[in-house]
Simulated assay, not measured.
Amino acid sequence: MDILYNVADSLRLLREKRPLIHHITNYVSINDCANITLGIGASPVMAEDIDEVQEMVSFASALVLNIGMLNPRKLEAMIVAGQQAVQKGIPIIFDPVGVGATKLRMDAAHRILTELQVTVIRGNLSEIKALLGLSSDMHGVDCLAEADNGREIAQKLSERLGCVVAITGRTDVVAYGSRVCSIYNGHALLAGITGTGCMTASLIACFCSVTNDPFIGTVASIATMGIAGELAEKRLTPNEGLGTFRVRLLDAISTMNPENLLQLIKLS
């Protein structure tokens, strides 16, 4: 399948080009996002002051906007950074963390999607359903919904907004118009540590920065995260748990290669 070789080649390009990825992201997971960006072969910058984000984006190859720890000044910085990203023509990856939980998050997401040309939205099923205007099951920022009709939901939002939509969960789904892909890599332990969704958004930005096809870039990044989770779990000894798994996950990301992706990816 061409998609498999394109996915694998995107990792080769990423390691070769080492793009700069600008994040305005979640304080809970900011260190993990920076490290996973470094691990996959890119360079992170985490500037969020409204007085410098426009200049910083001008140096970057992709922009991540994550509303996990939202405040008014950060939202304004996201809009300014996003406008510069649109002007420069670089991908914007939007992670609408907990968007169904409060009015503040919903209003912020609506503004970002209205004022900016987002390239990829990555969320759990509840978050994507909330953006689509369906009922969502949220507990804080955690998803309580099961992935029942994820392909249909992702495709509907993609067609409405004209961007790639990725739903991450037990089975991951990526949709871009009529193109829809399910990814079956991953391990349950990924849900046991905080920030894996935020880290996945960072990976999406990394891959999309080096490919002209954001669908391929998104599939590649989500498969990479899932495969890394599988490898990290396999390397645990009986007396090791979530803390070691977190370290093993970064190890697996940093040693990932195109051959791993071709051999281990599971998609339809």
Score class of each variant (00 low, 15 high):
I40Y: 08
A42L: 04
A42W: 10
S43D: 02
P44N: 05
P44D: 07
A47W: 00
E48N: 06
I50V: 11
I50M: 03
D51M: 03
D51V: 02
D51I: 01
D51Y: 14
D51W: 11
V53T: 00
Q54A: 13
Q54D: 08
E55P: 03
M56V: 14
M56P: 00
V57A: 05
V57Y: 14
S58L: 01
S58P: 07
F59H: 15
F59C: 09
A60W: 08
A60K: 07
S61A: 12
A62W: 12
L63T: 01
V64T: 13
L65Y: 06
N66C: 06
I67G: 06
G68P: 13
G68D: 12
M69E: 13
L70R: 07
P72D: 15
P72L: 04
R73E: 15
R73V: 15
R73M: 15
R73G: 03
K74Y: 06
K74P: 03
K74T: 13
K74F: 04
L75P: 03
L75D: 11
L75K: 09
E76Y: 01
E76T: 04
E76K: 14
A77P: 14
A77N: 11
A77L: 11
A77T: 02
M78H: 02
M78T: 03
I79V: 15
I79R: 05
I79Q: 06
V80N: 00
V80E: 10
A81W: 00
A81I: 00
G82D: 06
A85M: 05
